[in-house]
Computed example of a mutant assay.
Amino acid sequence: MEKTVSTRSMIFTLYGDYISHYGNAIWIGSLIRLLKEFGHNEQSVRAAMSRMSKQGWVQSEKKGNKSYYSLTDRGEARMDEASKRIYKLESPEWDGAWRMLIYTIPEEKRHLRDELRQELIWSGFGALSTSCWITPNPMEQQIKRLVEKYEVGSYVTFFRATHEGMSDHASLVEKCWDLDKINERYSEFIKEYSQDFIIDKHNIVKGDLSDGSCFVKRALLVHQYRKFLFIDPSLPQELLPEKWIGDSAAHLFGEYYRILEKPATRFFESVFEQG
């Protein structure tokens, strides 16, 4: 079992993959029981939920003597965006336009600038220059939410533009993103999970893999694949290199996820219903 997965990261994974599809709320007791499967104790779960609540990701509600936690609007928006990118099997089509965000955030607000930069990276933007970020994807709604969240409307300018030169699109992409490095990471993912996929598929058919084991394997698979959200800008097919293997990794993830889905869901429901 992977011991380095933080409690907070695994909670995000469970919300995105399970809880948001079951009414968005979960009894803290059920969450504690689920996370016990990954080696997280009650104290770490309660501490992580408290931090996530203060950060605006989740909110709590009392029903009798039980506490239930659900995603906030901000949390739901993040999960929706993440799900669209995680579960896509092929790169999106391109409308030919570039979205460009330029900010001039003063030094005394540099903490906002740093947080905004991290959000832009997560959303797939690439840095064309220090304060100029671009993406070929339609990110208008996400940018609106970011500007409102950090209250930086007076410091930000956003364009939908065409690239007229002086270099070609490939050179522009190369300047903003290291696709070779991302391709290497996808290659490592395929090498690591291809054999496990074959073995687990065989064991599930034979009935040699418990529902609890499938639940853990599926959650850890999603957790590992979710890391690509922080490095892969999800570029359209037209802008990807010829030997791009991101789509192959996506198909492996999708197939592995599918064979684990039914037994993993059975285990989740058996615990979730206890609340």
Results as ranks from 00 to 15, higher is better:
26 I>E: 00
81 E>S: 13
42 E>W: 04
18 Y>H: 13
88 K>M: 08
212 G>C: 09
140 E>F: 07
198 I>W: 10
187 S>I: 06
132 C>I: 13
132 C>P: 05
125 F>Y: 12
193 Y>S: 01
138 P>R: 03
83 S>E: 09
76 E>H: 04
270 S>I: 02
44 S>R: 13
160 R>T: 11
156 V>S: 02
258 R>I: 08
57 W>A: 13
255 E>V: 03
117 R>K: 02
138 P>N: 07
162 T>P: 03
131 S>L: 06
262 K>C: 13
215 F>E: 03
30 S>W: 06
204 I>D: 11
144 K>A: 12
30 S>P: 09
102 I>C: 15
69 Y>S: 04
35 L>K: 10
217 K>L: 13
157 T>H: 10
205 V>R: 14
65 N>M: 05
198 I>D: 11
31 L>S: 07
178 D>W: 05
161 A>M: 09
36 K>I: 03
132 C>R: 09
71 L>H: 01
147 V>E: 06
262 K>L: 10
28 I>G: 06
72 T>I: 02
44 S>G: 10
204 I>R: 13
127 A>H: 08
141 Q>M: 10
275 G>K: 14
187 S>W: 00
267 F>Q: 09
160 R>S: 14
134 I>Q: 04
47 A>G: 10
259 I>W: 06
28 I>S: 14
192 E>P: 04
163 H>G: 02
109 K>A: 11
144 K>Y: 08
140 E>D: 14
121 I>T: 11
233 P>N: 03
186 Y>N: 02
235 L>R: 05
74 R>V: 07
114 D>L: 14
267 F>H: 13
10 M>E: 02
91 S>K: 06
180 D>C: 15
189 F>L: 11
248 S>R: 07
186 Y>C: 00
160 R>P: 15
136 P>A: 09
131 S>M: 04
236 P>D: 03
236 P>V: 08
88 K>D: 15
15 Y>E: 01
37 E>Y: 15
140 E>L: 07
210 S>G: 03
157 T>R: 14
28 I>T: 12
10 M>P: 02
114 D>P: 00
265 T>F: 01
128 L>E: 10
203 N>Q: 14
109 K>H: 07
179 L>R: 09
41 N>W: 01
192 E>R: 10
216 V>G: 07
61 E>K: 14
8 R>T: 03
158 F>A: 11
197 F>L: 08
138 P>G: 01
57 W>G: 00
265 T>L: 12
48 A>L: 04
107 E>K: 07
190 I>R: 09
186 Y>A: 00
191 K>Y: 05
118 Q>T: 15
14 L>N: 03
64 G>T: 04
187 S>M: 05
267 F>P: 12
43 Q>M: 13
158 F>P: 12
168 D>K: 12
137 N>W: 06
103 Y>K: 08
77 A>P: 11
216 V>P: 05
256 Y>I: 00
115 E>K: 09
1 M>I: 02
253 F>R: 00
95 D>R: 09
175 K>S: 11
111 H>R: 12
46 R>L: 05
247 D>L: 14
91 S>H: 03
134 I>C: 01
247 D>H: 01
30 S>K: 06
40 H>K: 14
271 V>L: 06
80 D>Y: 15
253 F>H: 01
275 G>Q: 04
17 D>G: 05
77 A>Q: 06
138 P>D: 12
272 F>V: 11
137 N>P: 00
125 F>Q: 15
260 L>V: 01
190 I>G: 04
